[in-house]
Design a protein around this nucleic acid. Structure first.
Lengths: 127, 127
DNA sequence: TCTTTTATGTGAGGAAACCTAACATCAATT
DNA sequence: AATTGATGTTAGGTTTCCTCACATAAAAGA
């Protein structure tokens, strides 16, 4: 099992993810509804989240805090997904995407006590 | 949050642990009853396991497969726990402990498909 | 060999956690 | 003023988990 597989293993119930991210169940389900995340399901239809999912949720939270909306976040996440690959022609209006990408690239967020900081989750992994 | 804390974070429901270890719920609860593991609980009294717990369960499974009984495994686990510290006087009969430790030290186990191999869990961590 | 212990299976009854769907709300747009 | 976007809340139902009790087969002990 390599690192990529480990990061995408379905491991966490929504209750844990709520604690790790300090998002509400409603928020998490809404983001799934809007195709920002795609957690697996148990045979009984309950969500099972991977490290990647939690990581993405922390990123979503961070971007929401900085004023992005769901549509913008979706663009950003898709952009990131495509980065390793062809970066030439995106179907989506290039102006929008750029205007979103500007202003959003750096910045560290300060969070509450019990939750994970965005990026901290990577510490779970060797690579 | 350091590695030690990460490894002991309560993260997994028993359902996940069953899949990761290929133990039954009955077995896992029995090992807890015999103080081999001490998973946390939710406010609603449901077990939450850490990476350390899962790791320990994989080790328990491996040792059971090799013929040890619960008492022997408990001695072994306590031995390991004390290794970093004082290794001088153990309250428990030294002959027993040695006789158990002999024959049990090496060996790799070959497991089924979907479960983790003992030791593989450490790959989740940087350190 | 007979009895006890060990490790695990199984099932009942109940509680916790999760599910979807619907409606409410409030701020930001239009 | 009306719509949209993001989230809260509640209801009714399902899944997962809990403890406790009893069953059982194999191993250990007498």
């Amino acid at each position: 099992m390599n690192d990529k597989e480990r990061r995408s293993m379905p491991l966490f119930s929504i209750g844990i993810v709520i604690k790790l991210t300090e998002l509400t169940a409603r928020q998490i389900r809404y983001y799934e509804e809007n195709n920002l995340i795609h957690p697996e399901r148990t045979t009984g239809n309950q969500r099972l989240f991977s490290f990647n999912d939690v990581d993405k949720l922390l990123k979503i939270k961070s971007l929401l805090d900085r004023g992005l909306n769901i549509a913008g976040i979706k663009l950003l996440l898709e952009e990131e997904k495509d980065l390793p690959k062809a970066q030439g022609k995106s179907e989506l209006s290039d102006k929008e995407l750029r205007s979103i990408l500007r202003n959003e690239l750096n910045e560290a967020g300060r969070y509450g006590k019990a939750s994970l900081r965005q990026g901290e989750l990577s510490r779970f992994f060797r690579n």
